[in-house]
Design a protein around this nucleic acid. Sequence first.
DNA 1: GATGCTTTGATGATGCGTCAACAAGGTTGT
DNA 2: ACAACCTTGTTGACGCATCATCAAAGCATC
Lengths: 156, 156
Amino acid sequence: MAEPRWLDERQAHVWQSYLHMNQHLYAELEDQLTRESGLSGADYKVLVPLSETPGGVLRARELATEIGWDRSRLSHHISRMERRGLVAREECEADARGLMVRLTKAGRKAIQGAAPNHAESVQSYFFDLLSNAELATLAAVFDRVLENLTSDDEEI
Amino acid sequence: MAEPRWLDERQAHVWQSYLHMNQHLYAELEDQLTRESGLSGADYKVLVPLSETPGGVLRARELATEIGWDRSRLSHHISRMERRGLVAREECEADARGLMVRLTKAGRKAIQGAAPNHAESVQSYFFDLLSNAELATLAAVFDRVLENLTSDDEEI
DNA sequence: GATGCTTTGATGATGCGTCAACAAGGTTGT
DNA sequence: ACAACCTTGTTGACGCATCATCAAAGCATC
């Protein structure tokens, strides 16, 4: 740590572009999602794994792990989504501590209405702008950076 | 919008990697920043432009524009940072509506202590993992995606 | 130079995310 | 079977972001 390695001009530019791109891309996608389907990004994140599960039911613990949230955040958010009729709480028969989260009909309708538009947005704002070679590079880079971040976790 | 263009397998994988990478990278950088210097990401974002300005003073409006915040958010955050002695509010002589935000000695000390560690983190978690060719590709891609997003704004 | 419009910043209400504390149920070891 | 410990989910408090509203100051047009 004695000699800090400052970003050179090129790196600084890439880093700024990356931060700005994220900021604008997230904002744009969330905006469209909310406008077109009334769902927040958080709602969408919760609904996707539920809609992809055969019964539309998931244990809260698994749902939380899947989307990288802690139990508290999920509990709060489920409460709000339950009030809006998107999901329902059910007992867990296998473990009395557990909670099963069920996708309601309204919830399924919401995610089915939102998903196509969202996919179209991701295509038009991101993938449409990439060549095949660039896509391959991004895949490699993102995986490598992610792998490096998550393998650090296990060292504890 | 009739025929939604779903993500193919490759695209879906890249998109997931991108989202996860962002999540972990942001979390890790913010964690290190907070642990090592007691500054949040928001604090850092505010302090950087101030420390790069000759006098260490910026008009609130410009500061807000620079970091992409609205006036309300900046006002709230300046209040909290002022309480902690990182910045100070001053009158704007040129425009009586305006507010000048001044970096205090403590604020300068904080950002000077935080910046080297932050740069080192960015290097080790991101740039160290990239080849020169990959860096060039990222630069091109990020700029293109960003340009596409921000040029849309002007069409209004 | 008065009227109306815009810009700038502050403020309070509301919703979300994080944290610490808690209760109830499970698990392990003896 | 009992004790100690761990897991799971809920709750309330607090900090931060967003939104609508407001006041004060500039600016423009006549």
